[in-house]
Amino acid sequence: MKELATIRFIGIRMSRDFITMILLLGVPIILITVFSIILGEVEGLSGTPIRDETVVLLVLGFQLFGGAITMNYVHQDLFAERKNRLLSLPMNTTLYGFSIMLAGIIYSILLGIILITYTTMVFDVNWGNFIWALLVITLMSSLSSIVCLVFTFSVKNFKIAERLSEVYGVGMILLAGLFFPMPDNALINMFNDYVNPLMLAYSSIDQVRSGGLSDGWLYAALLSVLILIAFGLLLLTGRRRMP
């Protein structure tokens, strides 16, 4: 499985990609810090400090953008400048694509862990069960990478794929009502309850945090269903586009 062995090098490349690091780690740290200071210890209607709600949503929200690194590397290596060289190598390019995806997911999870640790230690944010939070972060990171790859394979112009990935991230945050409250519309509410990965992930963590383990499982299961659907689309689109 020499394709999987390339994960090491993909990891090294990602760790030296400072712009991505600033965007996926530096920016959230700054935003979380600013938000945490502004929000202070104010309690929300549910009794949970608003800071805990906002910070958890922010960390999960940034996971929506984690797939950007996966799609960029897949594009660079298999569709752009390095395509011919990598195709000339004695390896299975589909497996190599999966290696990139795996590396991207691990990278995003690691950034998530750093953010969870930072928010817990510095602002005493209550994440409930750490292992559970990690599981949810893993699901979010996997979903983001898969969705971004579906975009990469679905459209010919990579710039449009990038815009779609931004629409995915910003759109979910917008629908979750993080920028401003969404109108009380049945369709939007249903979307947020059953489809919006950000809300599913948040609800899962929130339920486990407040003792509702079974509901926590339910939301995680819904998130997993989304992953399965996205993975199905990935196989369909990938088979058509993979070089």
Binding site: K2, A5, T6, R13, D17, P90
Partner: peptide
Amino acid sequence: ELTAKENLEFFAGVYG
């Protein structure tokens, strides 16, 4: 993003 040596190690590894 990889050093010259790491680049060669990558390709050598892929060639088995």
